[in-house]
Write a protein that binds this DNA or RNA. Structure first.
Lengths: 223, 223
DNA sequence: GTTAATATTGTTGTCTGATGTCTTGGTATC
DNA sequence: GATACCAAGACATCAGACAACAATATTAAC
């Protein structure tokens, strides 16, 4: 009992794809004017229909190029929902946030951390060195290192914010697992940061952290 | 690199629902004309955005009646930014976060904002002046002001993060509506910030914002 | 007074036509 | 060849108008 034309149209197009197999995955649909004329609806209504299909992962719209049946369509039948809800931010934005937040975190950590916390951070730093030396994946250990610094700020919000940023980064990045040459930078950067933390030098820790993040951004060829 | 307005709008509305909790499940959204004006998009574009949300099961459209947040829409998104909203953090921590993030936001806004965005910020600034002159509650207007600046950074994460901080602050504070001397500070601070924004002076905007937040913290007798 | 028919109001649904903007490919120029 | 520019094709957005529907208020009939 669909009354809306846009819903009916979405259904019609889906039928063309699944049942009639008129458009196979990867193929291009007719342009909006042709399709709307064929379905005898206005372009406005057709566009709403296509939005529905796009939201359900059926088609992919490429501005200036056309609308295509998604290559991976048919596999993800149950998916559909709430890809929107997930934070779908640009990696660049996320690193920019790190660049804003983490140097300040290092600053407050240098000032407020307890001796035990500093000691803990040192141990994590050494652990990363070992793992790099063993050729292991350093991602998790490095994350622990940064998390420990965030915690040492004694700012609850900060402590909870950084993991969110890291996870968002994880979701969007799987490239960049290649460029490992920056590993030397990492170890050196960490040493400098730790040194400033131990000396309780807030400004120094801030600057060192800034450089560290900038190095990471370079590694991803940003900035 | 620019995203579609309809996608952005869908995201904005989702933010209103999940993060700002402005519309709870079962509640009605503003009608299409009002919402499109608020988001500063055409009705056509808004309707495409709503189609996306409907396809994702976020809202339900009832012709002739209105558009409603779906009763069974569960905003359990334990990974995303919204999880931070639940955190019950110390007010001091939250203002410290503002002090870290907002000056940088002002910096990037000064550099990246479009002329229209700058103009919009100016208007919001004036509106606050009027509301203060009329003795009205300036909270909401002021939030809009800061939100507009955050948006002008063109950093999506930033745009989503600040509302969370504001909301967390709201939950913990209802005092401090007395000290009126800070009102003059507010107007003056805003003027300075706006001036730097207009001149596209990033460093200036950053400093001015820092001072503004520090004033706000003084008002709450922190630091 | 009760009830049924009818307006009114508010909202979503659809259409038309124009203009903006992005992508791509071709062509001219060097 | 490489580069810069131009034009066509396609999606993106807008503004305004009218239609269809739902809920409520008003009126008419009894």
């Amino acid at each position: 009992m669909q009354k809306r034309l846009s819903d009916r149209a979405a259904d019609d197009i889906l039928t063309m794809i699944i049942i009639e197999k008129r458009f196979l995955p990867g193929e291009k649909l007719p342009n909006e004017i042709e399709l709307s004329e064929e379905l005898e609806i206005s372009r406005t209504t057709l566009r709403e229909a296509v939005r529905i299909l796009a939201a359900n992962g059926v088609v992919e719209i490429r501005r200036g190029v056309g609308t295509f049946v998604r290559e991976d369509f048919e596999m993800n039948e149950k998916k559909g929902i709430s890809s929107l809800a997930a934070v779908k931010t640009d990696i660049r934005d996320l690193y920019e946030m790190r660049l804003i937040v983490e140097p300040e975190a290092a600053y407050y950590a240098a000032i407020r951390a307890s001796d035990e916390e500093i000691e803990h951070i040192m141990q994590l730093g050494k652990q990363i060195e070992f793992e790099i030396a063993d050729g292991k994946d350093r991602t998790e250990a490095e994350r622990e290192f940064h998390r420990a610094i965030a915690k040492a700020t004694h700012n609850e919000f900060m402590t909870k914010l950084l993991p969110v940023i890291y996870q968002a980064i994880d979701q969007g990045v799987e490239l960049s697992r290649k460029k490992r040459k920056a590993i030397l930078d990492t170890v050196q950067d960490h040493k400098v940061i730790m040194e400033f933390l131990r000396m309780r030098n807030g400004e120094g820790a801030k600057s060192a952290m800034k450089i560290h993040i900038l190095h990471a951004m370079e590694e991803l060829s940003m900035q």
